[in-house]
Every structure is written in C-alpha cells, then in structure tokens.
Design a protein around this nucleic acid. Structure first.
Length: 387
DNA sequence: CTAGGGTTAG
C-alpha cells in the first residue's frame, strides 16, 4: 500500500483495499492512515477526507495518526484556522503531534500571539513539550527574521527539560546569517555545545558565500574535511551557484572538477548554472564543451543558457555563432527537447541583427511552440532591417 | 506496519 501511495497510484491503492476486503483480510487503521497521510502530503485534502469517511464502513475509527495528517494538511494547504477548528473537534485529547501541526501553520502564518496561546494551552493540559516542537518554533522564528526571539526560545525551553540540539543550532546559524550578520552566525558556529553536522557546515558556508567571504569559505571547507564531515551535493551546489552568481565562474569550474573526488555527482542544475555562468562571462566555447560533455541529459535550461552565450557572441564578433546556435536547436529537437519561446526569440533576434530576414521568417514559421510578442517583434526587426 | 523540527540550485 505504501509503495502504491508513494507512486501516487491512488486507483491501484483503492483496488488493493477492495481486494483486502474480498480476501477476508480487511484493511485496518494503519492501512487507512497510510493512504490518508500520503494523500495529505500531496495536497489532495478532499480525497483524504473522503477516505476518512469510508473508515467506519470497515469498522475503523480515525485516531491520532489520521487527525495529525489532516491537521497538517489543513495547515499547509488550506487556512490554518481550519486546522485549528479540526483540532477542536477531535473528541479526545489530541496528542503533541496534532498540536504541533497546528503550531506549524500558525508559525508560518506569523501568528505568534496564537502560537503563544496554543503553547500555553499545551502546558495547561500537561502535554509534553519536546525538542521537536521547540525546534519547529525556533526554525520558523529564524526564517521570519525573528532570530533573537529564536535564541530566546532556545534559552527558555530548558525549563521544560529540553536541551538545545544541532537542528536548532542549524536554524539559528542560518537565521543569523540571513537576517542578522554572518559574524553572529560564525560566533555561534564556533561555540556550539554539540557536534556540527554537514547541514551546519552547509548553512555556514551559504552565509559566507552570500557575504562573498571567499577566504573564510575556503577555510570552512578545509575545516569540514579535517572534521571528517563528508562534503555533499548541497556543499558543492552552494559553492558553485554563489561563485557563478558573483562572477567567479573559473573558480566555480575548479570546485565542480573536485566533485568526483568527494563522491558527488553534479546534477543538471549544476550544469545549467555553470553553462549560464560561462555564457555570461563570454566563454561560449567552454559553455558548449560543457554542454556536449554532460554525462546526464541536458534540459531546456541548459540549452537556452548555451544559446544565450552563442547569441551574445554573435552580437559581439560577427562570427558564425548563429549557425552553431541553430545546430544546438537541432540537437535539442533530436533529443526531443522543445526549444522554448526564450530560445526562439533569442535566435530570431540574432538573425534579425544579421539582416537575415529570410532565416528570421523561416524560424518564426517553424516554431515548435506558440510565438510570443518578443518573437514577432524580433522577426519584424529583421524584415525592417532587410528593407 | 502510520504522524513529527533543520540544507542547495537555473
């Protein structure tokens, strides 16, 4: 059942339940809760509710698992007030997980007063306020820029027998570097009361990269290796994307080339980032080489990044880059990738600037997608320039 | 056997 749900094969899941009934092996709460929780995760809240209504027919009653899934889905996919209302209609004392799902919705909606009230209610009901609950609140505060409050909650929670753990520290480090100063983040990073993990390092790295503190970033990675903390794909993605963004594409390439040494495989997004970076730095040949040597399948964004470089080069040097651009387009079609409107408009514009009205028109007429205004304008430009 | 706090990117 779990497998079918994970693959979103809802009809098969329904058929399986029917089969269970037929074979005298009736579905139980666990069966239903599995289906319900997956439906909820996919945002199919109405379907989930329908399944809940089917439960009594099979002698099953919704329990804490059912309700926490629904409350969570209401919080995420609907209005958090629906979640709150559902919490109130549960005919028994809902457990911490159910409460926490509502808290999550309230935190995300920035309804801190209501968060406080609900926490007070939990305390009144002598419910277990655990690390997970505090971790959730701290992270939301940090994400909303209320890092100081996050730090305050971290201090207060010891009253409830909770001690700070690495997940909370990670949220705070990220919060400080995004919404405060990266030095505050570093300060905390250096004085943690528990062992750092790869997420800690990656957050810290992101902060340093954003601040363009490349030397510190380099030192951090060295420290990571020394600490025997394995660099992962996030580490590399972070470095590569920030280096490209800030115009240091050569460094990004160096980092990229080190990936295999750390058992990390670059994915299509990393490739498109690099191709785009090379195109923007007017290294179109390198961009094309990277595109051609990709071990994974290139997607539209990779192609359009390369085309961007080609079209720029064309404008600059009056060379035969548009021919390569057309070739790239053909390559795309060969691999059954649809060039998108952006690609077409770049190409049409490229031909127009070369006064090649015929090619411009031909391209416009043979487009594999709906031309937009920019395509038409570019074609018009070609026609006008050719007289 | 089911639920729950933290990473990256075009």
């Amino acid at each position: 059942m779990k497998g079918l749900c994970r693959d979103e094969r809802w009809e098969d899941a329904g058929a399986l339940i029917a089969e269970m009934v037929r074979k005298d092996c009736p579905p139980d709460e666990v069966t239903f809760n599995t289906v319900i929780s997956y439906l909820c995760h996919r945002g199919l809240v109405d379907c989930a509710m329908e399944v809940v209504e089917q439960m009594p027919k099979y002698g099953c009653k919704p329990d804490n698992f059912t309700n926490s899934a629904l409350v969570n889905a209401f919080s995420e996919h609907r209005c958090v007030d629906d979640a709150l209302e559902l919490l109130r209609t549960i005919p028994w004392k809902p457990n911490t997980v159910c409460y926490r799902s509502v808290l999550k919705g309230l935190c995300r909606a920035d309804r801190w007063e209501d968060v406080g009230k609900l926490v007070a209610e939990m305390i009144r009901n002598q419910m277990n306020l655990d690390e997970v609950t505090f971790g959730l609140i701290i992270d939301c505060l940090c994400q909303k820029g209320l890092v100081d409050y996050g730090a305050e909650v971290l201090g207060e929670m010891t009253k409830f027998g909770c001690s700070p753990d690495i997940i909370m520290y990670n949220s705070l480090i990220n919060g400080f570097s995004e919404n405060g100063s990266v030095d505050d983040a570093l300060e905390l990073f250096k004085n943690l009361s528990c062992k750092r993990n790869v997420v800690t390092y990656n957050y810290m790295l992101k902060g340093l990269c954003r601040a363009e503190r490349w030397e510190d970033a380099g030192k951090l990675v060295a420290e990571m290796v020394k600490d025997e903390c394995l660099l992962n794909e996030v580490t590399f993605s972070t470095l590569i994307s920030y280096l490209c963004q800030k115009g240091f594409v050569e460094c990004a390439i160096e980092v990229f080339e080190k990936m295999p040494k750390y058992n990390c495989m670059p994915n299509v997004i990393i490739y498109s980032t690099l191709i785009n970076g090379l195109s923007e730095q007017e290294c179109v040949d390198d961009a094309l080489k990277l595109l051609n040597d990709m071990p994974c399948k290139a997607d539209t964004i990779c192609y359009s990044a390369a085309l961007k470089g080609l079209c720029r080069a064309e404008r600059r040097e009056d060379a035969g880059f548009l021919e390569s651009a057309t070739e790239v387009c053909e390559l795309m079609l060969k691999y059954e990738y649809m060039p998108n409107v952006f690609i077409y408009s770049s190409l049409i514009n490229g031909f127009a600037e070369q006064n090649r009205a015929e090619d411009t028109l031909k391209l416009l007429r043979n487009m594999q997608c709906e031309p937009d205004t920019i395509c038409y304008s570019a074609a018009l430009k070609g026609l006008c320039r050719a007289k």
